[in-house]
Write a protein that binds this DNA or RNA. Structure first.
Lengths: 140, 140
DNA sequence: ATTCTAGTTGAAACTAATTGCGATTACAAA
DNA sequence: TTTGTAATCGCAATTAGTTTCAACTAGAAT
């Protein structure tokens, strides 16, 4: 369990401790290809290492968010989900009627980001947004 | 306690029951000039009418959301906040460093809304957005 | 190898919000 | 005015996430 990835290296360089719990959590996040919840991370870890507390998972995610190493998103399923920031940014259009999710490239929000910077001198964190509404099939 | 407002009228016309609990909740929402939380609504009501349960407040807010009579927003304070939809739409830029909140007119997101409609035929609900980032004073 | 200590963890308590269910009630129809 | 019933409510349990605090430990310093 020493295959260090991008996030692990970053944490180490920044002087954070690499505890076994953190290594496990980082490994699960880096090896998941879609958005994963805290609960799912915890379940995967507990299977092999029953002594990891869910609050440690939340605390690690909090740390990774603060360091911009993961982005979080609320897709409307009652749980916040996480994604490694270095695996590319994107957004989601979520239909509130049928639940369909349309993926959107980061570039779709670039004009908005530019406008906010120009007019308000505000650097918006628009790396992973969920936009709710109605898809083409659910419009009345 | 029968001064019916805009939301009350709407609910009535749609065939929803006007229970005393609902009337109280609607009155508090319509008379609050800024964003209010479920907890705050409940506290205000309980002062005069101690038998209203907090879950009724949440359920009423859920209904009003579904009917687009209120918009909700997460300003980052650990509670979701609510605003009557008929009192005008707007957005907020929230600085994650100092907490400053810059208010934004609805029109700021009109170009994005148009793009999503044109390119994805998606009707985005962009009536009350919180955009996190860094304000001009907190940029390094 | 041993010691030191700030960073980290587990456990339990707590907060915001949601849900299941039996009891209550607004209001339409008799 | 009374009745019937689906909508609504209160209560208690549940879920997702956060916080507090005492105990533990990674990793630097000796």
């Amino acid at each position: 369990m020493n295959q260090s990835g991008y996030i692990t290296d970053k944490l180490s360089k920044l002087g954070y401790r690499l505890t076994p719990q953190r290594m496990m959590i980082l490994s699960v996040i880096e090896n998941s290809d879609n958005h994963i919840s805290a609960e799912e991370i915890h379940t995967q870890i507990v299977a092999k290492y029953p002594n990891v507390n869910i609050s440690t998972v939340y605390r690690t995610l909090e740390l990774l968010k603060r360091l911009s190493l993961v982005t979080e998103i609320n897709l409307g399923g009652g749980q916040v989900r996480y994604h490694p920031a270095n695996k590319g940014h994107h957004h989601h259009l979520i239909c509130q009627e049928c639940g369909t999710i349309i993926d959107l490239d980061e570039s779709a929000l670039a004009p908005l980001k530019d406008t906010l910077l120009r007019e308000y001198k505000f650097i918006a964190d628009l790396r992973h947004l969920a936009i709710f509404g109605r898809c083409v099939n659910c419009q009345r």
